[in-house]
């Protein structure tokens, strides 16, 4: 099944895809993108790697197990939701803060954290299912 063209392509594409996914995730609030797509793109990158080098290699190149991504993604999203509760606002209210010096002012908010959680869950779900199905 695995050809050297596929293997080489997968190895070159993988980091690019992951980088692209991070780009999509961060810009998602203002431009096309977001946690869901980012998660799918990361998942595609690893599925590609799986086809090229096998499940074991794909699992190894993922720093955490997809199983843990599932739980931590939910936890991150939940944390984003709970943060406003601690300052007396309702669950899942967005909180925003200006970070950095005035010239490079960055607006950071809990929705981004929530989006990261979504992204983790999506990667976790796709890879958990795919890896276990293929291993089966």
């Amino acid at each position: 099944m695995s050809s050297s063209i596929l293997r080489t392509a997968a190895r070159v594409l993988m980091p690019l895809l992951v980088l692209f996914a991070v780009f999509l995730l961060v810009r998602g609030h203002n431009d096309p993108g977001g946690g869901f797509v980012a998660g799918l793109v990361i998942a595609v990158a690893f599925v590609l790697l799986m086809f090229a080098d096998g499940v074991e290699a794909a699992r190894r190149s993922l720093p955490v197990s997809p199983w843990h991504l599932l739980g931590s993604g939910l936890l991150v999203a939940l944390t984003a939701g709970l943060m406003p509760v601690f300052v007396g606002r309702p669950f899942l209210t967005a909180l925003w803060a200006h970070l950095g010096p005035e010239r490079w002012d960055v607006l950071v908010g809990t929705p981004l954290l929530f989006d990261i959680g979504v992204c983790f869950v999506v990667v976790g779900v796709v890879l958990t299912m795919t890896f276990s199905l293929v291993e089966d």
């Binding site: 431009d31 977001g34 946690g35 607006l107 908010g109």
Partner: peptide
């Protein structure tokens, strides 16, 4: 604080 309506709705 977001221009991407779809994503703002989602998150």
């Amino acid at each position: 604080h977001g221009r991407n309506i779809v994503n703002v709705i989602l998150v």
